[in-house]
Nucleic acid binder design. Structure first.
Ligand code: FES
Ligand code: FES
Lengths: 147, 147
DNA sequence: ATAATTAAAGACAAAGTTATCTTTAATTAT
DNA sequence: ATAATTAAAGATAACTTTGTCTTTAATTAT
């Protein structure tokens, strides 16, 4: 569904939301280890989420690292997708027509659009915080390898 | 959702189902033009669907080309996905965990699985023939550019 | 038989994605 | 000030996907 980059962005953001605070920033090494992702690549990806503290915040230097504001925790998952430039996939035609439209629909459109709408709703209503709470509560995981 | 290759495979197969018969085979040029895809790349892709006449049939030489049997028209869309090696995407975790499972679910799993199940059902129940009929009836299209 | 036509097969090229490594800049602690 | 620490920035490499082009094989028509 999503690129590796977006998968890492989602997992990293959820992990940061679960573990960090302004007084307890997380290093890229800790994050990458926790979500089982390549360190340098994850660092690159997080750079897409930090400008203007749009999704997550970063500070350099000792005691620096990544954290997320209470405000940003309330953002929907869709905010991450937008920052990653992947929100277009929810507009795309499942058969690859240039435009997904009612005017010139592909033969899967009439049934696919309902499913797509559910995906959009899910990404628009679920917040980063809600996902982090599931990790915190031990009912969900960000890493297949360890608990 | 799918790779370009799979999108072309789906559109090409539906077009062949709509237009061809054993007595009226279609050239790769006609197919690629009709579905607005690169000719040579589409030829390569169709080679994945022909072995054993699994999905479509091809014959070389004059009056040769591609066609599809009545039997194959009744195949579900999923048959094309399997031939293209894309059926795994319906098993994948939306956050990229190694396994999508109830035992160790990601925090999107509980809601995403329902949507995923609808997608699987759609691809398992919709047949190539049904999609071709929508093109034939003029209520759906395989090409954004022309009618 | 020969020539013409068509898909199959294979080599190759271009572009995009994923990943690593090195250097730079910002911040903190001494 | 200096050194240590951390993310940012940039260069580059490996791999995958997408796409093109040429040669080969099969089939038909003459
Ligand atoms: S036109 Fe294909 S999904 Fe809407
Ligand atoms: S575990 Fe993530 S979708 Fe099932």
């Amino acid at each position: 569904m999503f690129s590796k980059a977006t998968e890492y962005a989602l997992r990293a953001t959820i992990y940061i939301a679960q573990k960090s605070s302004v007084d307890n920033k997380l290093s890229i090494h800790e994050i990458a280890k926790a979500i089982d992702s390549p360190v340098s690549f994850t660092a690159k990806i997080l750079q897409l989420l930090t400008p203007g503290n749009k999704v997550i915040s970063a500070v350099r230097g000792p005691k620096g690292g990544f954290y997320i504001t209470e405000q940003s925790k309330k953002l929907p998952v869709r905010a991450i997708l937008i920052a990653m430039g992947e929100s277009k996939i929810l507009d795309k035609c499942v058969l690859g027509l240039n435009k997904c439209s009612e005017a010139k629909p592909c033969p899967m459109h009439s049934q696919y659009k309902n499913i797509k709408q559910q995906l959009i709703s899910l990404f628009e209503t679920k917040t980063i915080q809600q996902l982090a709470e599931d990790i915190d509560g031990g009912i969900a995981f960000l890493n297949s390898k360890k608990g």
